[in-house]
């Protein structure tokens, strides 16, 4: 059941994220700072789904950038090639990721550990190669997207672009957070945690392991698709390399950095990994080194992620006192 603590945190999160742009905007160059939160927002959307898959269900995917790519090219197809409204683009993105996610989850989720990692990695690469070799979508040169218009509202209008996208992605994140909290605080969440530890035992307790794994995999691919569509519209351009293997690994790092058994951890994980390149400024070619170092340090010293710090500190104080 959703606890009072969750409801409180969710409301707190809503208020913070709602007023953040207003506060940022009062600074000079506030638009730039709000702009940082848009990519953070759409990566959060993918990472939230991935956290359910990795942290709760104990599966792994190194191919989620591929599903973002599918989402992005769905929007390209609808908006650029067919000239329909962006909403249909989102619908196609959801539908395609649902179908593809469902079809590949059947064979792929029978695999475990390293084998699952390799298989999902392969799927990510296949999607990237198809998008590069498919000349209809501009091949390796990429392809541009018209502005994101929902009804008569143009999200890409330069006057309010950051604001508009900011509220779009964070409203979606709020909804996904609410759904995730519903889910993990019910018997379904406990079922995921159980099959994470031992699938045979989970089965013997009446948990339909295949159904749960498929469901959560498809849910995460759909979120990745929506995220990819928004990202493509925001950048107005999509390249086959926009979401590549590097992105997939970064997404997994975000989830692990935040803490795998905590939904809120994902928010911190995404924030930190997205802010590092901004802080590095002109040294951003070293981003790879910093990301690698962060991952190693976390795995060595904080295997349960950033959200385990309070617990660790408590235990440390306890030890000193006792």
């Amino acid at each position: 059941m959703i606890t009072k603590k969750d409801t409180f945190q969710l409301s707190f999160f809503f208020i913070i994220m709602f007023f953040l742009p207003v506060i940022l905007n009062s600074f000079q160059g506030g638009g730039y700072y709000i702009g940082i939160f848009v990519p953070i927002g759409f990566f959060t959307l993918t990472a939230l789904g991935l956290n359910l898959l990795i942290g709760f269900a104990g599966q792994i995917s190194l191919g989620h950038a591929g599903f973002m790519t599918i989402g992005a090219y769905s929007s390209v197809y609808i908006c650029n090639k067919l000239g329909y409204s962006a909403l249909y683009g989102f619908a196609l993105s959801i539908l395609l990721n649902f179908i593809i996610g469902f079809l590949i989850s059947k064979p792929i989720l029978k695999l475990k550990g390293h084998y699952l990692a390799m298989a999902t990695l392969g799927i990510g690469l296949i999607i990237q190669i198809i998008s590069r070799e498919f000349m209809y979508f501009g091949g390796g040169e990429g392809i541009s997207l018209p502005d994101l218009k929902i009804f008569d509202f143009n999200f890409n209008d330069f006057k309010h672009k950051e604001f508009a996208y900011y509220y779009l992605v964070w409203l979606l994140n709020f909804c996904v957070l609410k759904l995730s909290l519903n889910f993990i605080n019910s018997k379904a969440g406990r079922a995921l945690k159980a099959l994470h530890i031992n699938e045979l035992a989970a089965q013997s307790l009446g948990i339909n392991v295949t159904a749960y794994k498929t469901f959560i995999f498809v849910f995460s691919t759909i979120l990745a698709g929506i995220s990819g569509s928004i990202a493509a519209h925001y950048n107005s351009y999509i390249l086959p390399t926009t979401f590549d293997l590097h992105t997939s690994i970064k997404l997994v790092t975000m989830v692990i950095l935040g803490g795998t058994l905590n939904i809120w951890g994902t928010l911190f994980g995404v924030f930190i990994l997205m802010i590092i390149p901004e802080l590095l400024g002109k040294f951003d070619e070293y981003e790879g080194i910093v990301l690698g170092a962060v991952l190693i340090v976390i795995l060595l010293f904080l295997p349960d992620g950033l959200t385990s710090i309070p617990k660790k500190l408590k235990r440390l104080c306890f030890k000193n006192n006792g």
């Binding site: 959703i2 759904l179 519903n182 889910f183 019910s186 018997k187 379904a188 969440g189 406990r190 079922a191 159980a194 989970a202 307790l205 009446g206 948990i207 159904a211 749960y212 469901f215 849910f219």
Partner: peptide, 19 residues
């Protein structure tokens, strides 16, 4: 222990997402 009572309640996973 509650996991042991998984068979009780709804069998639709969807419902738990949307509560």
């Amino acid at each position: 222990i509650m996991v042991g009572g998984h068979i009780y309640g709804s069998s639709s996973i969807f419902k738990y997402l949307f509560a």
